[in-house]
Every structure is written in structure tokens, then in C-alpha cells.
Design a protein around this nucleic acid. Structure first.
Lengths: 242, 242
DNA sequence: CGCGATCTTGATGCCAGTCAACCTCCGTGG
DNA sequence: CCACGGAGGTTGACTGGCATCAAGATCGCG
């Protein structure tokens, strides 16, 4: 995920964001509808605000970010997508995108056409409920981010983000012993937690100097997860609604 | 809505949040499943974080807020619900609440049991898509709030919130000539936009002194909507995804 | 009339933004 | 093999927006 080129993906299982139990039969059906796979370079735009229509897309590998730009040039990342998450359902829901999606690292994406999804839902309405639940799970993350940006200070926000990513990556099997790859620049982190790049840097250094986090070359080690969660006020309940 | 007691509701039509076109037949079906109606006093808790199960609830009258508390006592309101919006679907989705809901004014709520909704969806799967789209619309608002709290200053945030409420209330038929009732305290506003109550007060005074807003006794008048939108960088696209 | 909730105002301090410079790393091409 | 350039990370100095604390004014209501 952190390597410059996309490597073979570890698992073809589609997990719903964040980890939602998928019945074996359902997972098979979900995988069956992925027809095309596409590789995207880091920094490339996957979908753009205002797009009227298109395909259904699932992130298979890498990290992507939903974001919105302001007139003044500022950027706010409003969601981070991990392998297994849905990027777009806009082929199914007749809506325009209200935000853009960028590949934060190199990504592999599975896509399906609108017609295929319609057919799958017609055959198996329970799958629609599953997709809906995935939307709800993403909304829960969005709410928690709002709490962070609105009411937590720089240190708490950054710590909270790391706790969340650790939890979600662990659920995706992408975290071993509190080590994980995080292919985001400090500017990206700042655009997630609503800080300037400079202050993001100072905040990360503070986490390092407190012995909570080691973080070099895109590899993060949460050296004291319990203390980090305590600092952040992190409660994984919102990631685990079932 | 701003009156201390709940009055007869103006319309029984369930709109999906934010205004989503509902086919006439669908609206009839939706109304049919509302079996019980409940009045809630301002300040009362409608649902609580961690609730395991319950009924489906639709807000018929009044304003409600989704919120989360921090250990330190801070509160962040993560969504404002207007008449026609869904408050909970937790009887249908087998999930725990990740947040609480408070009646920001006195409210009238329509509820339905889990079994009834299951039956309706079984009879008419298209309705499930409609509910899902409503969830997506609420998520779009949540994303825009993240942009506000993360990247806009106090004046822009507050102006943006007023623009959004005006737009949504107008769609609900609750705004005439840019006047509307807003039964929120300045503390509530602060907990929405991530400011202290004191600074919220100063920000509102600045909007008043610029001739953009008149606001007394729970009645808001946007005196120059165009200028307010310009100041806030408000683009209603995210409220209008169809 | 009196009390509590809400709104308002002033003083003070700090958290985080901004600007500017420099450093390290790494890929590229001469 | 080294020069170069760009992206990302780091540091310092300074500023300012907003939090906090505290006190008073106003409003609504019993």
C-alpha cells in the first residue's frame, strides 16, 4: 500500500466500511459484480465534485480521500477510504457527487456498471440493506470527525485519528502489532483534522516526544495504544455498531 | 415550532431529509406506517447513545439535534433535524446508536414499530432505496459541516449555518421572505459550529452590525441572503443532489 | 416580584495560523 | 557519478482568532 506501485492485493473479499459482517453468500454475490479493475496513481483524482453519473466503485487496495475545496484554496478531507470501502455508488443512486475523491496512495479499484447492480439488487434485496448499512457506518465516522474538529485540540485530534485508523486497519488485516503503513503526507493529515501543515508537524512531534507514536517513512507505530486512546478520548463504539 | 407548546402540524407529508422528491404513492405508503405520535418537551432526550434497539421515528414538528458529549463536558451537535427528517431507523437497522438526540424545541414525533417497516419494505423494496437516499443526503450535510468547522472562520461558519437552515426550512415550507423561526440558544449554535458561547454571541453581533442578519426572540431574518451566501461561500449543491 | 436561563460585555491569555527559511530525501537526467 | 529540482519535513519568529473567566444586563416565567 505504501509502495510506489500497486502490488497484488492480499484479499479479494469486499468488506463493508467499516467492517460489517457479511454473510458468506452475500460476499460471493458482491464480488461477482466487480467486473473491471483499475489501477490509479497516487495523487490522481478518482471522482470529481459535480459528476453526474458513472460506475459503482470499490477500493481494493490503497487509500483514498473524499475532500472538498474552498474558494480560498483550502482543502478539507471529509473521509478516508481503506481497502474494502465503497468509493461511489453513484451509478445506482441517481445523485451528483457533492465532493471529490483523490487517491492518497496508489490504488486498485473494482468497478461495476449501473445495470449490473440493479440486477443484483433485484435478485437479492437484502444486499441493498447491506449497502445502506455501509453508508450508515461511514456517516458514524463522519460524526465522530465532527466532534474531533469541533471540540478537541490539535493533540487530541491527531491522536484520535491515529486510533481510528489503527482500529479500522486492524479490522482490515492491515495492522500487525500496532504497526501500519500510512501513505499520507503531514499536509494530508492537516487537511483531515483541520490544522495547518506546520502545526500538524509540531503536533506529531509532540506525540513522538511523549513516546506515544513512532512515525517514519510512511510507517506508523503506536507505541502505547492505551495511553494514546486515553489522550484522545477514543471509544471505538462508533466503529462497531453491530 | 417556536411556540412553547406543540401546535397542530401543518402538513402530514413526510419529506425525506433534505427534500427528496417522493412519488405520491410512496408518500402515502410512508405515512401509512406511522402509527403513534408523541409530543416531546424542549430539552428532553429523544434517544440516547448506546441504545440497542427501539422504534423508527420521524420528526413531524419542531427541531431536534444529534449530539455527542466529551468526557470534559463539551458537547458537539453533529446534525440538526427539521420536520420531515428521520430521527432513527434503529428499529430497522440492527445497530446501536453512536450518538444521542435531543429535542432542541418542543417536538412532535411519529413512530412505527420494526415489524411494520419490515412489512412495508417487503411489499415495496423501492422504499428502501428512498430511505437510503435520505441517509446519503444527511451524510452530505455532515460533510459540509466538516468543511465549515475545519476550514472556515467563526463568521463564515455561522453565516453558512444560517444559509443552510434557510434553504432547508424553505424547502419544508417553513420560511417566508427569508424569515424563519430558529428555536436554538446561542449555546446551541456554538455547539453546532464548534465555537464557545461567548464567541458565538460576538459573531452573531458582527453579522447584525453588517446588516446581514436580524435575529431576536427566536426569529431570524436574513436581510441580504446574497451577501450572506457570498460571505459564507455557500453553494446549495450539497443539499440538492438530484 | 424574584429567580433562572439567556444574552452581553470586558479583560486576559494561549493555541494555532502564517510567513519564511532551511534541511533531508529521492528521483531524474546530463 | 554527480548536479539539479521538487516534494516533504522541520524550525523559528510573530501574529491573531478564539477560549476562558468573570460580571452584569435582559428576558421569560412561575
Amino acid at each position: 500500500m505504501s509502495s510506489p506501485t500497486v502490488t497484488a492485493r492480499q484479499s479479494s473479499l469486499i468488506r463493508l466500511c467499516p467492517p460489517v459482517p457479511v454473510l458468506v453468500g452475500e460476499a460471493t454475490e458482491l464480488e461477482a459484480f466487480i467486473r473491471h479493475e483499475r489501477l490509479i496513481a497516487a495523487g490522481a483524482e478518482i471522482a470529481s465534485e459535480g459528476d453526474p453519473d458513472g460506475h459503482v466503485a470499490v477500493l481494493m487496495e490503497g487509500m483514498a480521500g473524499r475532500y472538498k475545496m474552498l474558494r480560498t484554496g483550502g482543502r478539507q478531507i471529509v473521509a478516508v477510504c481503506l481497502p474494502g470501502d465503497f468509493l461511489t455508488l453513484r451509478g445506482y443512486l441517481p445523485a451528483r457527487m457533492d465532493h471529490s475523491i483523490i487517491a492518497l496512495s496508489s490504488c486498485a479499484i473494482g468497478t461495476a456498471g449501473k445495470g449490473e447492480l440493479d440486477r443484483i439488487f433485484a435478485d437479492n434485496p437484502a444486499l441493498m440493506r447491506l449497502f445502506w448499512r455501509s453508508s450508515m457506518a461511514e456517516a458514524a465516522i463522519s460524526r465522530e470527525w465532527l466532534v474531533s474538529v469541533g471540540r478537541r485540540n490539535a493533540l487530541e485530534r491527531t491522536a484520535h485519528l491515529l486510533c481510528e485508523l489503527q482500529y479500522r486497519l486492524a479490522a482490515a488485516g492491515l495492522c500487525r502489532g500496532n504497526w501500519f503503513q500510512l501513505p499520507l503526507t503531514q499536509t494530508d493529515i492537516g487537511d483531515i483534522v483541520g490544522l495547518s501543515a506546520v502545526h500538524t508537524n509540531r503536533t506529531i512531534q509532540e506525540l513522538r516526544s511523549r513516546g506515544l507514536v513512532a512515525w517514519t517513512h510512511g510507517t506508523v507505530h503506536l507505541r502505547d495504544l492505551a495511553a494514546l486512546r486515553e489522550l484522545a478520548g477514543f471509544d471505538p463504539g462508533y466503529l462497531d455498531l453491530d
